[in-house]
Simulated assay, not measured.
Amino acid sequence: MRDLRDPNLGSASMDDLIDTVLRQLRSDPRADDQIANRKRRGQQGGRPPAFDRDAYKLRNTVERCINCLKQWRGLATRYEKTATVYRAGLLIAGIFLWSAR
């Protein structure tokens, strides 16, 4: 079995190695800078302040529709050479998906 010890850590066990890495991550000064930057910027930066359930439902519906359309080989591979033929295939696939509901 291979020796997994880091030469910089000596003969430390794996638990000591994990503890060392976690300690370094917790003491990373960049994390404090990121938190301060988010607080300073407010709603203009960082994570969104709240979860919008209606926007999520609409986005999820669109993503699921696109995933269903990707099941069509002609649409997924973009085999058609012209935009009009590709659009026609997209419309036909949409009609089939709509009628299957």
Rank of each mutant, 00 (worst) to 15 (best):
D52R: 10
G45N: 02
R30I: 12
A50C: 08
L58I: 11
W72M: 00
D32I: 07
M14T: 13
N60Y: 10
D33R: 15
N60W: 12
G46W: 03
R53P: 02
A83L: 04
Q44W: 11
R26G: 15
N60L: 13
P29N: 00
L25R: 14
T61P: 03
L58K: 15
G89W: 04
A36R: 09
Q71R: 13
G10H: 05
Y86F: 04
G45Q: 03
R5D: 07
Q24S: 09
R41K: 14
R2P: 09
L22V: 15
I66F: 00
I92A: 03
D33M: 09
L69E: 03
G45L: 02
L75T: 02
D15A: 15
I92Q: 00
A55E: 12
N60I: 00
S11D: 10
V21C: 01
Q34Y: 04
C68N: 10
D6L: 12
A76E: 10
R64I: 05
R38G: 12
R64K: 12
F51Q: 12
R41E: 07
R41W: 04
I92N: 00
T61D: 12
C68A: 14
C68H: 09
Q71K: 14
T82W: 06
N67M: 05
R78Q: 13
P7L: 01
P7N: 03
K57S: 04
T84M: 05
V62R: 15
R53C: 01
S13M: 07
W98N: 08
Y86E: 00
R26N: 14
G89F: 06
P7M: 06
I35Y: 07
M1Y: 07
C65L: 14
Q71L: 15
C65V: 13
D52A: 04
R30K: 10
L25P: 03
A83N: 05
R40V: 03
I92W: 05
L75H: 05
Q24V: 01
I35Q: 13
D15G: 00
F51H: 15
R38K: 12
R101A: 05
L58N: 13
R73G: 02
D6I: 05
R40N: 10
D19Q: 13
A88L: 11
Q34F: 06
R38D: 13
R41G: 02
K39W: 01
A76K: 10
N60F: 11
T84H: 09
I66W: 04
A12Q: 04
R53W: 08
S11N: 10
G94I: 03
T20D: 08
Q71Y: 01
R87D: 09
R73T: 12
R40W: 00
M14Y: 07
P7E: 00
L9Q: 05
L9T: 05
D32M: 08
N8L: 14
Q43N: 13
Q71N: 05
R101G: 02
S13T: 09
V62D: 12
R38V: 09
Y79Q: 13
W72I: 11
W98Y: 09
A88T: 14
N37S: 12
N60K: 15
Y79G: 10
